[in-house]
Amino acid sequence: MRPACQADFYTTLSGDDHDGRFERCAGHRGKRQGIGTGTESGSVMPPPEGGPVVLKSAALAATWTDADGGTLTLKQDGTFVADDVCVAVSWYDGLTWSGTGTWNQGGNKEQTFVGVTFDAAQPAGFDIAHPDSLEREPAPYAALRHGKVLKLWVAIGDPDNDYPNCVLTSPAS
């Protein structure tokens, strides 16, 4: 099942009148999950080290690698190849997808976001009510810079658990 914010990726990135969906879509655990409000019901993984960064397409067109060796190769022509790369879909954790598709970038004055759309539908999790759930668009990745290292990241899993974030780094950085 696609998170509500995924359906209007670019509009959620440009405004904050979406009942907190901006933060979730932008790769942050924002007011929708209660961050900073003192109402947290569990432990939430903070974003990886680094600050938001605006990246041009040329800097994004590279091979990005996750902690388990999965790769996402973004090509200059707007296509990509993924090989067991970590993705965020709804509240599921531990999902990795492989395949091809197209990518695009959005953002605001402070940060770039990368959305990917797979050519073929991928398994979306282990939902008992919908065991055959398939998706083509995981949640978008947000760009960070930590020193000279560039990162694309997205929060995964249930925000009340300590699931690790999905973090991709670029060796070119």
Rank of each mutant, 00 (worst) to 15 (best):
D77Y: 10
S14M: 13
T112I: 07
I35T: 15
D8K: 11
L55I: 06
P138R: 08
N165L: 01
T96K: 15
L60R: 08
L150E: 06
G147A: 03
M45E: 11
V167K: 01
R145A: 12
W153R: 01
V54P: 00
D162M: 13
V167I: 14
G125N: 02
D19R: 08
V149L: 11
G36Y: 03
P52E: 11
L150T: 08
E49H: 13
V167F: 05
A67L: 07
L60M: 08
H18K: 13
G38I: 04
I128W: 09
G20S: 00
H130R: 11
T39W: 14
A155W: 11
E49R: 15
T65P: 05
N104W: 11
M1N: 11
E110F: 15
C5H: 13
P164D: 03
G15D: 07
D83F: 04
I156Y: 04
L152N: 04
K148D: 11
G20K: 00
A62L: 07
P131S: 05
G38L: 09
P140H: 07
L95G: 02
G69T: 05
G50L: 12
L150S: 00
V44Q: 15
F80C: 07
D77V: 10
V87N: 05
G125T: 08
A155I: 03
T100N: 10
L72C: 02
R32A: 12
F22V: 04
Q105K: 14
S41F: 09
S43G: 12
L168E: 00
R145E: 13
G157H: 00
Y141I: 03
V53S: 07
A129P: 00
T169E: 05
G50H: 07
S41P: 02
S170L: 03
D162T: 15
T65E: 08
V154G: 04
G69E: 06
D16A: 13
E49Y: 05
H18I: 02
D77T: 09
G36C: 01
F126G: 08
G50V: 09
V89M: 11
G147L: 09
T12V: 14
K75I: 06
P47F: 06
V154K: 05
R32L: 15
S14F: 11
T37I: 00
H28E: 14
D77Q: 08
Y10K: 12
A62H: 10
P171K: 08
S170A: 14
A120M: 10
H146M: 08
P3F: 03
Y163L: 04
T102I: 09
M45C: 05
D84Q: 15
A124E: 06
S173A: 12
E40Q: 15
P52D: 13
P159L: 01
D83N: 15
L152G: 02
P48T: 08
D66Q: 02
L144F: 13
G27T: 05
A129M: 09
P164Y: 09
L60V: 02
Y92S: 11
A139K: 04
R24D: 13
A67C: 00
S90Q: 13
T102K: 09
G38P: 01
Y10G: 12
T39V: 12
F80S: 05
C5N: 03
F80K: 05
